[in-house]
Design a binder for these strands. Structure first.
Lengths: 161, 161
DNA sequence: TCAAGATTGATGCATATGCATCAAGTGCGG
DNA sequence: CCGCACTTGATGCATATGCATCAATCTTGA
């Protein structure tokens, strides 16, 4: 059976794209003006800081953040260069490694959250009632799941590009 | 007065980010597998094809697409290299120029819309009723406007990153 | 136990992006 | 009319990303 290409879906998608990129630009701009590194760093630090042991395998980080493998690899390089994380040997799998967040990393993550949450409040919270935010979340959730075959990690996390 | 950082807004924002990037990945993947260039090309071609005369000043394109000036400049380079657009002299302002879409450009835009609309249907339309899509659009609209000082072009357009 | 295949993470190379700056042209105030 | 600030669009350079591929290790199954 033929299904007419839904105008409503198209228009919702276009708004989704535009709003997301507009707001993201604003948020990143604020963070950058406050002298912070890109959001991807925050995401990684957050994931690491949440791990019970403060360390994760790169491959886990990659799956949490939904970014390609080489991207994870180089992101870790940068975090390590800045002393925000450290590579630790993985005894159970010699191919692999653990990435452990450092104290400096935890501290940066917390400071960034200050600026980040303020930006979210400014660009999202102030425009939407709590009830509407809940509705929005619910509608988005329906889109999120099972796009192709990957699974969407549902945890309250950061933003991953 | 102090305003507690809304958990709801935060969670809505995170979902917005994740869903957008997930679905966008899927859509771009489909387009790429079908042998098409990136969505940004489509956006530009669409804007050009919509212009009554089939041509726009780079600076207009830039404002429509919400991308930085140098990015527009180089995107146009690529379109021109591929014969999808042509630079035309601007008689009224000798600094400037017009970019005109070619027949090949119009044709590619139409072919891409075929694949693009199919992807939107697949990843968005099939997951959301029309009514829900409308609700989603409405909620997103509230976020879109007046982030900082720029204006959101409301026209039904493509996606601009 | 060992070979074939899969997984983990790094990297060389081409391309794309961000930033700063530039040259050319416009337009406004005096 | 002139000079000065602004707009338009391009570009050099550093950095980031995507793609393909690699080496090392792990796992499976005959």
């Amino acid at each position: 059976m033929k299904r007419k290409p839904s105008t409503e879906a198209t228009s919702a998608w276009i708004r989704l794209m535009r709003v997301q990129s507009r707001v993201l630009d604003c948020v990143e701009q604020d963070l950058k003006k406050a002298g912070f590194p890109p959001l991807a760093w925050y995401d990684a630090l957050l994931e690491l800081s949440r791990a019970p042991t403060g360390e994760l395998r790169p491959v886990e980080l990659e799956r949490q953040m939904l970014i390609p493998q080489y991207s994870t690899s180089r992101l870790i390089d940068r975090l390590v260069d800045e002393g925000l994380a450290a590579r630790r040997e993985c005894k159970i799998d010699k191919r692999g490694q653990f990435v452990e967040i450092t104290e400096a990393g935890r501290e940066l993550q917390k400071r960034m959250w200050g600026a980040y949450s303020a930006a979210i409040e400014k660009y999202v919270g102030s425009k939407l009632s709590d009830a509407d935010a809940v509705k929005l979340s619910a509608l988005l959730d329906r889109l999120g799941c099972s796009c192709g075959e990957m699974k969407l990690p549902v945890n309250e996390s950061a933003t991953a590009r």
